[in-house]
Nucleic acid binder design. Structure first.
Lengths: 208, 208
DNA sequence: CTAAAAATCCCCTTTTTCGTGGAGATCTGA
DNA sequence: TCAGATCTCCACGAAAAAGGGGATTTTTAG
């Protein structure tokens, strides 16, 4: 018998999940929370196998709560749930310890599948192909003005915290050159300064 | 009949995958490449359903190649393969359009499962629970000196490219205060400057 | 209540980055 | 071969951040 705990602030969603899960064999709901604080408190006494966690909660962000639960109750398998299947949300959840991701439009089979998969210790991700093959993911790569090899090299060092001077020493060019590369990247990518340049770079995987 | 293309620079791995896949029903190998350039060239004539892509290639990084293939051949479903099941690699691959992730130690069933799953348009991730429940993921959350609410707020604005001055105006405090928060974060997180602060922050999901 | 933590503010100097505008050298693909 | 991209370098001033101090007021949690 696998015990499930639901954390979501939308009563409708909670009821929906509840009725779907209770119809499935081998599963039962062991608790519900409508916000992060309530969830943490209840988890001190109830210990579910799987926790279905909404990404958007009223008090704390789902990602933060995910991190917290992972730390305090590492045995609980967390499955993120949300309305959208955004790649960025998904990878964020994975980084913070979620074992799965479900969209709210998931079918009963998908929910059962997700729970079974995470119980086996694997990651489960529900995503429909139409979404994945469309623009949003293309935009990321297509809209990117491409940086030159040298620029990427400099960018990498900037991200590591080196100053123009230190980079210049490292790649045997003058400080002016490094500075020019930095400025060109800021212009190319349409950001306002080094801080936002690095943010952009990390978010777009331009940095190792 | 699902056609598979393999990109990996280790002949042993290629042979292994080949023999495993050829024994499975409904699958066949339509091509092999030992590096990124060869892969791109061959893909101009051969059009596989699924591409198994090693993360570590001699010429370009697997992530870059993944992005490139996604852009030029959006119909091909890419499954990343690597020796390790590092969360950071996994989320990087997802961000760049991969539909799945397999460790090289995967069994024949897992490989078949992965291919079937991505063909259905879902993400497939192979990960063993022992790995996921161990330190590395705990380290991320446990080692993090926690930033205060105010610091996170300032951090967010810094990442958006605002200067101390602009942030000060926004949150109605003096520039000195914002500067102090910035310095404290740099010290707390043990980074050298704002650039590396932002890199750290984005990589650890401290920024929305 | 009280100690610790957080948030606020200020000084100073040095270093780094930003903004602007330019310019020669080298590489590379059509 | 020849244009265009890339890489290299520079100057100048203004603005911002780094590094080092120190200090007071709120908030928070036990």
């Amino acid at each position: 018998m696998v015990s499930i705990f639901i954390v979501d602030d939308h009563p409708v969603v909670v009821e929906g999940l509840k009725s779907v899960i209770e119809k499935l064999e081998g599963l039962h709901i062991c608790g519900i929370a409508y916000n992060a604080v309530a969830a943490i408190n209840t988890l001190k006494t109830v210990r579910p196998d799987v926790l279905l966690l909404d990404i958007n909660l009223p008090d704390i962000s789902g990602v933060d709560l995910c991190k917290k639960i992972r730390k305090e109750f590492p045995d609980i398998k967390i499955v993120g749930i949300s309305t959208f299947s955004e790649r960025s949300y998904i990878s964020r959840m994975i980084e913070n310890g979620a074992m799965g991701y479900l969209v709210k439009s998931a079918s009963a089979e998908e929910i059962a599948d997700a729970i079974a998969t995470v119980m086996q210790g694997k990651l489960y991700m529900s995503l429909n192909i139409e979404y994945l093959l469309r623009p949003s993911s293309v935009v990321n790569s297509e809209m990117l003005p491409n940086l030159t090899k040298r620029e990427k090299e400099v960018l990498q060092y900037i991200a590591e915290g080196l100053t123009n001077n230190q980079i210049a020493d490292k790649i045997f060019v003058s400080t002016s050159t490094v500075d020019t590369h930095r400025k060109n990247m800021i212009t190319k990518l349409g950001v306002s300064n080094t801080a936002s340049l690095i943010r952009f770079a990390v978010e777009h995987g331009l940095i190792d």
